[in-house]
């Protein structure tokens, strides 16, 4: 800032109004992005519907509805409910959001917005909020259908469950933000998103729930953001407060990834 003697009084006087105006502008951007988000049926299907669809398909296999001695008397479908919750997060955070953000950058949409009183960061924030909302809806749908169709009990430790869901959601979005920050083109972001998608699905337990993995592999997977989150969700589903180690691992990943994204994000 230059010439503080002249700018300070004016800036101080205009400040509350500016903040209000900025909030109004952000809400306008958020509303507009929400309308646009609803016009993406493919993204909506993969985030909102697909996790539930996959869970239903697995639930239709009779053996998965039988209590399993190896799983401590739980059924496979019980373990797949948290996995389906994580699947929606990974799809939203890694497959969908980086593509949107890099498109906004590559097509000059962020740049166009930075010539108005609105900020390009509002567009990014709106996308994060909308993807988080879609993830929440997706998770609620999985829990509801799991409860109604397969009598999967709702999380016995709801506070721990919500905490684990929040951390996992942040982790998935942080991975996506980092991809968008580091990839210079839309194509690259999509390629990296796909490459990251599969290991993340694996660590989240989509192919085999983390609890069923061999000891060594399980320990490794528990060091990944979604592997740890998956275990935290399982604990909370079963009624225990998630282990601080699992929550801590995910939280550290969130901090590291978000710092990386903020450090390397390019506006143009």
């Amino acid at each position: 800032m230059s010439a503080p003697t002249t700018t300070t009084p004016a800036a101080a006087a205009a400040d509350p109004g500016d903040r209000r105006r900025r909030r109004t502008a952000f809400l306008a951007v958020l509303r507009s992005e929400a309308v646009l988000f609803r016009r993406e049926p493919a993204a909506l299907f993969w985030i909102l519907a697909f996790p539930t669809v996959l869970m239903v398909i697995l639930g239709l296999i009779p053996a998965f509805r039988e209590p399993d001695e190896g799983l401590g008397g739980r059924r496979v479908i019980d373990l797949y409910v948290p996995v389906a919750v994580l699947l929606g997060m990974i799809t939203a955070g890694v497959q969908v959001m980086p593509g949107v953000l890099t498109t906004y950058r590559e097509r000059g949409i962020l740049r166009r917005l930075s010539t108005t009183p609105a900020r390009p960061s509002m567009l990014i924030a709106a996308q994060v909020v909308l993807h988080a909302a879609a993830i929440a809806l997706s998770a609620l749908l999985v829990l509801a259908v799991g409860r109604i169709a397969f009598r999967v009990s709702l999380p016995a430790q709801p506070v721990g469950y919500v905490l684990a869901v929040l951390l996992a959601c942040l982790a998935a979005l942080a991975v996506g933000a980092t991809i968008a920050a580091l990839c210079r083109t839309i194509k690259m972001a999509q390629a990296v998103g796909t490459v990251v998608f599969f290991p993340m699905m694996f660590t989240a337990g989509v192919w085999a729930p983390v609890e069923t993995l061999p000891e060594t592999l399980r320990r490794i997977v528990e060091c990944t953001p979604l592997g740890a989150a998956s275990q935290a969700l399982n604990d909370a589903a079963g009624g225990d407060f998630p282990g601080l180690l699992h929550l801590g691992v995910t939280a550290v990943w969130v901090v590291v990834l978000l710092s990386a994204a903020a450090r390397w994000f390019r506006w143009e």
Partner: peptide
């Protein structure tokens, strides 16, 4: 520069004038 592919002309004008 471009705009979001699926934003309509009216929505763009309304959004930008709200800033």
């Amino acid at each position: 520069s471009e705009l979001q592919a699926k934003i309509t002309v009216r929505e763009a004008l309304e959004l930008y004038s709200s800033f």
